[in-house]
């Protein structure tokens, strides 16, 4: 275990709401660390609809998902938030001194005075393709990401999908795998044109094989894959393979937070509407992840929740201190923090 990182607030999730919480908490001198399983900020906005316009962000008649995230990053920059990307929040416990210890799946240890869960629809995780029996091969022959390329050495590898991950790994794993077959349901790809051209060139020379079709079944025994059945335009075919990497996008799962002892309402965390605190004092939940009567899963609701949560966190962290409400337009002390005066 590494030395613990000590901070005021740990925010679980770097979606739009987690990001805006940095701003509100920052105005009250509260320092934040954010953890997200994704490799960049923005949550659903960045992952699911970066190029789609949103029309209901106050004062932005139209702004794309990615632009909103970029603006938020700009807005919170003065508070120097620290990000821990590609990390799943795993463990959680209350320490004897009242603070909280949060651990990640990579073994980092963070100690904070308050925890803000802004986990949205849950952590993004690879989607399991709807192939019957695939779960029997997961972890042994079927993988959803490449942690070490060596795991694919001298294997007959089947890669399934039509996005950048599928194309990139087809090109990269070719050098270690015995053979690489790429299966996609159509000859058009959602990947960078350059990778697609490279892939087609390698297919021409026989270095890899590209097959149009959809995986409908797997064969093998004891978790060891031997072949995949493909429904292709020319009928059903079998492709021998010992490893499979399906890339079917991401889905959201609540994950380890479900075991923290939080009171849930259908996978959403129950909070009050004054502080947005959970049943565990000191642990707050804002944005899509929370539930209260009348809850709307809107970005603007999450922003409001962040502002109110901050008042409660400030009182918790600085007991006895008067929490002064100020406007950013007129308070020179807030403007100093923002670096504008």
């Amino acid at each position: 275990m590494t030395n613990p990182i000590e901070t005021d607030v740990v925010i679980v999730g770097a979606g739009p709401v987690g990001l805006f919480a940095v701003f509100e908490l920052g105005l009250y001198d509260l320092k934040c660390h954010l953890i997200d399983i994704l490799d960049r900020p923005g949550g659903q906005c960045a992952e699911l609809y970066p190029e789609k316009p949103i029309y209901d962000i106050p004062a932005w008649p139209e702004i794309t998902g990615q632009a909103l995230v970029d603006r938020l990053m700009e807005q919170i920059a003065p508070f120097k938030p620290e990000f821990h990307f590609n990390r799943m929040v795993a463990g959680f416990r209350r320490l004897d001194d009242g603070r909280f210890e949060v651990t990640t799946d990579e073994g980092e240890l963070l100690v904070a005075k308050a925890v803000v869960i802004a986990a949205g629809g849950g952590s993004f995780q690879a989607k399991r393709p709807p192939v019957p029996g695939i779960e029997n091969y997961e972890g042994q022959s079927v993988f959803y990401s490449v942690r070490r390329m060596e795991e694919f050495r001298d294997q007959d590898l089947l890669i399934v999908g039509g996005g950048d991950s599928a194309l990139d790994w087809t090109l990269n794993l070719r050098s270690v795998a015995k053979s690489v077959t790429l299966v996609h349901r159509r000859p058009d790809f959602r990947a960078a044109p350059d990778s697609v051209n490279k892939m087609f060139a390698l297919n021409e020379t026989g270095d890899i094989r590209f097959q149009v079709g959809q995986v409908t079944g797997l064969s093998g025994a004891d978790g060891q894959l031997t072949a995949a059945t493909i429904k292709s335009p020319d009928g059903e075919i079998e492709i021998p393979c010992t490893r499979m990497l399906p890339f079917f996008g991401l889905t959201m799962k609540l994950g380890p937070i479900a075991d923290w002892g939080l009171e849930l309402n259908e996978n959403l965390i129950k909070v009050d509407t004054e502080k947005f605190e959970t049943n565990i004092p000191g642990v707050f939940a804002i944005g899509d992840i929370n539930w209260y009567p009348g809850k709307l899963k809107l970005i603007l609701s999450g922003f409001h929740e962040a502002a109110l949560m901050t008042q409660a966190v400030k009182r918790l962290v600085s007991p006895g201190e008067k929490v002064v409400f100020q406007y950013t337009t007129s308070s020179t002390s807030l403007q100093k923090k923002l670096g504008v005066s």
């Binding site: 989607k127 393709p129 709807p130 999908g161 039509g162 996005g163 996609h184 349901r185 159509r186 058009d188 959602r190 959809q214 409908t216 429904k231 079917f248 996008g249």
Partner: peptide
């Protein structure tokens, strides 16, 4: 939509 259909089952 065609791109999204890549994620569907038995297209």
């Amino acid at each position: 939509e065609e791109d999204m259909l890549d994620f569907a089952f038995d297209v």
